[in-house]
């Protein structure tokens, strides 16, 4: 498989996943605000923090209110992390390699961007925001499903899976980082009942609430949710699971040693983390460490497989 083709597959999967994750995050945050009393509302600024786009946001908008944040994250062409930009990037990556993927998948990717852009064009405020976001999530999952069901699970598919899994790990770690800290205000003042709601929303941001209930025999609370999102081996958006996915792809490729080493280090860090004693500040530091390793892993994959040069 050509490096260029593998790279496009990798990025296509990342962008599809990013669009889906962002849509889910916005949607769940909307629901959360409705569930919280006015004095405990976390507002919309945390989403800017999660997506790491505060400087750009401040340049483009005055206040981090609902209207602005939602516009920025969904349809703002100037925001490289917006849903619409992610979908367009996914489409552009797919377009240059469309002959190697099943026709239906290409049509779905192209159509997903088309309908998303069309609706934004009609009304910036999106009166049916919830439905719109749901259609993005469904559309993205249809792409994933079509590719899983109609594309040969060859080397190219492995790059797609790696892109998707790395993007998932990234989003899960970002959500943990922000939600566990800045987002949840001081827990005093009789707000305790709402803590559960907030942690539930963290799970829901990652589509994890139901699976948590099925597999974790504990009430919804900080330690167990973190434990689940970081260490669960079976939940598809848990960091540990995603790392396993990436490793399973790498073992089929040559020259994988350095990348696999990084995964091993990440895995060990995740399993060694003692969440009972990990205070917020140290949790952030821990997640930052994971993020750095994710960056290294991406660089290693890109270096090894996408930027092939003359043999020594």
């Amino acid at each position: 498989m050509l490096s260029r083709v593998a790279e496009h597959l990798y990025w296509m999967a990342r962008y599809i996943e990013r669009a889906e994750n962002t849509a889910r995050m916005v949607r769940v945050n909307g629901h959360l605000q409705l569930d919280l009393p006015a004095r405990a509302r976390t507002g919309w600024e945390p989403l800017i923090a999660i997506t790491d786009s505060a400087p750009l946001f401040r340049k483009l908008y005055r206040t981090p209110g609902e209207k602005n944040v939602v516009a920025f994250l969904i349809g703002d062409d100037r925001n490289p992390g917006s849903i619409i930009r992610s979908l367009r990037n996914a489409r552009e990556n797919a377009r240059t390699i469309r002959e190697i993927m099943p026709r239906e998948a290409w049509e779905q990717i192209s159509g997903l961007y088309g309908s998303a852009a069309h609706q934004i064009g009609k009304d910036e405020l999106l009166p049916d925001r919830d439905q719109y976001l749901q259609s993005i999530i469904h559309g993205a999952q249809t792409v994933t499903g079509l590719l899983a069901g109609t594309m040969s699970h060859d080397v190219g598919y492995d790059f797609l899976r790696m892109g998707r899994s790395l993007e998932r790990t990234d989003m899960t770690s970002r959500i943990i980082n922000v939600r566990s800290a800045d987002l949840l205000p001081d827990q005093g003042g009789g707000l305790r009942p709402f803590e559960t709601i907030q942690w539930m929303s963290v799970l829901k941001s990652l589509s994890g609430y139901q699976m948590y209930r099925q597999h974790v025999d504990q009430s919804v609370g900080r330690i167990h949710v973190l434990e689940f999102l970081l260490k669960d081996e079976d939940f598809p958006r848990a960091v540990f699971h995603c790392l396993g996915e990436i490793e399973a792809c790498l073992v089929r490729l040559p020259r994988k040693k350095k990348a696999v080493d990084i995964i091993m280090r990440m895995r060990k860090a995740v399993s060694d983390a003692d969440l009972e004693t990990l205070e917020q500040r140290n949790l952030n530091r821990f997640i930052d460490g994971l993020q750095v390793m994710m960056g290294n892993l991406h660089d290693r994959i890109a270096e090894t497989y996408f930027r092939v040069s003359a043999p020594a």
Binding site: M1, L2, S3, R4, E99, F159, L253, P254, S309, A310
Partner: peptide, 24 residues
């Protein structure tokens, strides 16, 4: 393989290679 210019390179011995995930 359907390649583009950027998929190929010429080494010092004037041989042409393509960049693949398995190497050059």
């Amino acid at each position: 393989e359907l390649v583009q210019g950027s998929d190929l390179f010429v080494d010092k011995k004037d041989r042409v290679f393509m960049r693949t995930v398995r190497g050059a």
